[in-house]
Amino acid sequence: MIKRTASARAASAVDRRDFIRLAGATAAAWLTLGATSDRVRIVASLTALPLDDELTRRSMTESATTRLGGLIAGLRQRGWVEGVNYHFEIRSSFGGPDKLKAAVQELIDLKPDVILTGSTGETAAVMAATKTIPIVFATSNDPVGNGFVESLAHPGGNVTGFTSSTAEMGGKWLQLIREAVPDIARVGVLFNPASTPRAGRFYLDSIEQEAAASGVTVVLAPVSTAADIDRAISRFSESPKAAMISLVDSFLVVNRQAIVATTAKYSVPMIYPFHYFMDAGGLMSYGPTLEVRSADYVDLILRGTKAGDLPVQSPRKYELLINRTVANALGLTIPFTLLARADEIRE
């Protein structure tokens, strides 16, 4: 178990221009590392977050500690130097369907060698726009069910990538929040049907199975706009006692600050699928450990490997994070047996 203070957790930020300048200083070595020199490649990325979101800014300034920063650092290790033998382009799909369509078209017009996507909705939109440009999804919870790939082992087509969780995670989240709040009679499930896998059903089956076995009532709390968040959470502050589960959902990640603030306002315990919510002051999260492995696939694709020949990879480790200060504020005493299993306890 690792205990970290806020100062210890804060990664040292590097200005992106300094980072690129540092990468350029290694340009003389890129031929030795085996990158081809015939032309400058284009690596494109589509994100559901606004470009001025804290997570986006952090991704572009911290090297190996974030997905995009780690990608750039990983490519440099493999001989690909930004501004020398490839260019990195990023666009945001935030702002609704029209913005998504425009962002995808902007990237397609660049004729990139590979496009990285960050959510299920983005992957579907890019796939609808091209059947030839290689696509690597950073997270997809049901790539076979969504029709992205033929199978995990043999994706086929022009798409591959990484999954972030399985359908059984729903039941695991319920087990964990019940350990933290053992006397709950209800569990609310927060999600946006438009942006979570199978409109929520991907996780709901296992949540409902676990709830039936433990005598807990499942109450759906769908939201479609930021204005819905307060109403969706506030009703779980009333009797009978309840806790909540946040599903894997790009809409919820974008609105994580408002969600966490609202749970504090109404004293509603909630478990989240990503550490991003913990950084915003959440109670607990259980999800995949961040592993920046996309550089491996992007490198292979830039060298000529077909995306459809690269198997979809699943997380190798999941981590449990608990914020004991938030628990105290909610009037919860987290059992020692649960604290002992935590990978990180925040104070």
Results as ranks from 00 to 15, higher is better:
25 A>Y: 08
109 D>W: 07
66 T>P: 02
52 D>M: 04
76 R>S: 11
128 A>F: 07
27 A>H: 10
121 G>V: 04
39 R>M: 08
41 R>T: 00
143 P>Q: 12
108 I>N: 04
78 R>V: 00
69 G>C: 04
31 L>Y: 05
146 N>Y: 05
146 N>V: 03
112 P>Y: 07
53 D>L: 06
32 T>V: 13
37 S>R: 12
95 G>M: 12
114 V>Q: 01
84 V>D: 02
123 T>L: 07
64 A>Q: 13
43 V>Y: 02
146 N>F: 08
52 D>T: 13
25 A>V: 09
120 T>C: 02
110 L>I: 06
127 M>S: 12
28 A>I: 11
45 S>V: 12
93 S>N: 05
88 F>L: 03
26 T>E: 14
112 P>D: 11
116 L>W: 01
73 A>H: 10
94 F>T: 03
146 N>K: 10
139 T>R: 09
142 D>R: 07
142 D>G: 03
31 L>D: 10
69 G>W: 02
34 G>H: 05
144 V>F: 06
67 R>N: 12
39 R>E: 13
90 I>N: 04
118 G>I: 06
125 A>L: 12
138 A>T: 14
97 P>H: 10
116 L>R: 01
27 A>N: 11
94 F>Q: 11
78 R>L: 01
33 L>K: 14
82 E>L: 09
68 L>T: 05
25 A>G: 15
70 G>S: 03
43 V>I: 13
133 I>M: 03
32 T>K: 14
124 A>Y: 05
119 S>R: 04
105 Q>V: 04
138 A>K: 03
92 S>A: 12
92 S>P: 01
137 F>C: 05
99 K>W: 02
99 K>D: 09
116 L>T: 00
75 L>N: 00
50 P>A: 11
29 A>D: 15
89 E>N: 04
